[in-house]
Design a binder for these strands. Structure first.
Lengths: 355, 355
DNA sequence: CTGAAAGCGCTTACAG
DNA sequence: CTGAAAGCGCTTACAG
């Protein structure tokens, strides 16, 4: 009986050595190709790529992390209970585990506590930082990160800084698409609920509303615009203001879904049927959009995709920085989609009390 | 100029060798202590523990993973848009990154697709599986996992199986606490919105409602109980049913927050003020509880803590299994908290339309 | 542009 | 119960 030597391997698939053997090069060269290192001839690169593909080779991110140190992807988040943040977290998490990044979370609600939160994130091993809204619009946070040379990606900011990488949608165009839709439905008296004025996407959405009205030759009375802060609560106040007068708009476009949901609640309280008596639209297409009744017409923002893109960009930046290269600033614009549902469709929706 | 040899280290803190030196033992022994391996004398274990503490040593999970293979923590989830799932995900993710586990997600809404989802999870490298609601109540899923010897932890099931580890709260006691509170407020005519009948916590919450009423000597008319499915939508139907008659209850206890939020919406549609005309309570304390107006009195379920506990239990099981030991089945019960807010407090809440 | 050697921090598989 | 040796899969730091 020849004793079978138990294998010491920790991985089932192909390793870098298998690829090297098949490609007829050294493991080092395979490593270079996998890390997109530039010092490899095109011929060699092609051979390695082909070998890797034929073996279905996947880099062992754990082994890489053991050697290189963990890739700490810091996330400066606020408002963990919002649907927006949840969608973002899931996307970021998913991509991090694929790419071998380790997500490090630090909550930061308060603009004043920013500095501390950034310091804690770095102390906990962050090699780069993801900045989702609303912090993405804080110039002081972004400057602080830039000064210490920390790779950074801002997410969903309306006005990306020239020196900071960003992933976003075109909020202006998204709101404009919604307005064109409402106008095409024949609405002429459209009211607007503003978002947090400090948040640049809120500004752009509002500007698109104003421009669309002007381009259609319609005037906007001051009482047709109500301030909001993106919260359900602020939406209630705005709705009371917009629906409290004798003269009412035929449609209300809220700068996000939470506030649109609040508009529906107040409208129902006034015995107005949505959409028969009042059309209501939101923005973002977060889960509330389909949780409320009737379901909301809104602009879909691909939050998960944005999170994944941001993680990719950040990890690339960290790699480059470690390799001593200067990482280029990247700005990525993802597509939005106008989603029409019951809240704007006069033919569709039944009554709240009877179903 | 003596050239300074650049260090090759990937870690800033102490390593296993530092601890070994300080403790006067081999690195191997330190490794044994860190992995809670039993074959270490108490004296040695104490020396190592002290040395590790003095150096503030943390196991390098990346290096461990490189050697041992990644610890794949599978998560069979459904309904990613629900607030419950988001809170669970954040907790699980946080703990996984601390413990060196890699979270592997697989969606599974449909009971029929279970088998496939489990197979995919394993194909993607899961070494153990976390089963949150509603799948935690699927005996077939749990049995399938048991048969293939896969470490499993069920979360928030009302009736944990003897052979499967579980983390949960006492749903019966939680609902009972809510009922005692409502009874102490003087309510005698309390209605109930049931949760998904296939979900064991829904059954327990309902049973507590019935028992509390009986113990208080109050009868429950059939029209005071409405079926629901835990969704906002089903809560609207239930509320219409409960509030449609001339005779109305003074309080409605819904088996979760989403349905309680729907009850409030319908009540407002009927010009009933909450809590003045009707008290409304929920269960779980998910974000909707504080997003709606008035804010919901509810039972807090520590979802994040439950996720963290479940991850710890699962990782421990996987480790034991790899070490060839049999992992004991563990059942952990976490505490709930009754949270009283405006929706049950007659003194607190103002009117929907005037704020 | 490419490779041989050494090492990351940890654990497996022995041997005592 | 404890340790010396070898190895996990990958990358750093050289050298050519």
């Amino acid at each position: 009986m020849v004793p079978v030597k138990k294998t010491d391997r920790s991985q089932s698939g192909a390793t870098i050595y298998d690829v090297a053997r098949v490609a007829g090069v050294s493991a080092m060269t395979v490593s270079r190709v996998m890390n997109r290192n530039t010092y490899v001839s095109e011929t060699t690169r092609d051979k390695v790529t082909a070998a890797a593909a034929s073996l279905n080779y996947q880099v062992n991110t754990a082994a890489r992390a053991a050697r290189v140190g963990t890739l700490g992807v810091g996330l400066l988040y606020s408002n963990p209970s919002s649907a927006y943040m949840s969608a973002f977290l899931v996307g970021a998490m998913e991509r991090c585990s694929q790419s071998g990044g380790q997500l490090i979370l630090e909550r930061c609600d308060d603009m004043r506590s920013q500095r501390n939160a950034i310091a804690r994130l770095i102390a906990n091993g962050a090699d780069g930082i993801l900045v989702p809204p609303p912090l993405c619009d804080s110039k002081s946070a972004l400057k602080q990160l830039d000064q210490i040379g920390m790779p950074t990606v801002a997410i969903a900011t309306g006005r990306p800084l020239a020196g900071v990488s960003a992933v976003r949608i075109d909020d202006y165009a998204g709101a404009m698409a919604m307005m064109q839709y409402l106008l095409s439905l024949g609405h002429k008296d459209i009211a607007f609920v503003q978002g947090d004025p400090l948040h640049t996407p809120a500004q752009l959405r509002y500007q698109a509303y104003l421009d669309a009205m002007a381009q259609a030759g319609l005037s906007v009375a001051p009482e047709r615009v109500a301030p909001g802060l993106f919260t359900y609560r602020s939406g209630l106040n705005a709705a009371r203001q917009l629906l409290g007068n004798k003269s009412r708009p035929t449609a209300i476009f809220a700068a996000n879904d939470d506030m649109a949901a609040a508009v529906i609640a107040v409208a129902h309280g006034l015995h107005l049927q949505v959409p028969q008596d009042l059309v209501v639209c939101g923005f973002d297409d977060t889960p509330v959009a389909t949780a409320v009744w009737p379901e909301l017409t809104t602009v879909h923002q691909p939050i998960g995709d944005m999170a994944r893109a941001a993680v990719d960009m950040l990890i690339e930046q960290i790699r480059r920085r470690r390799a001593g290269e200067t990482a280029p600033v990247q700005h990525q614009l993802l597509p939005f989609t106008l989603i029409t549902r019951e809240s704007s469709d006069p033919a569709a929706a039944p009554d709240l009390l009877t179903g």
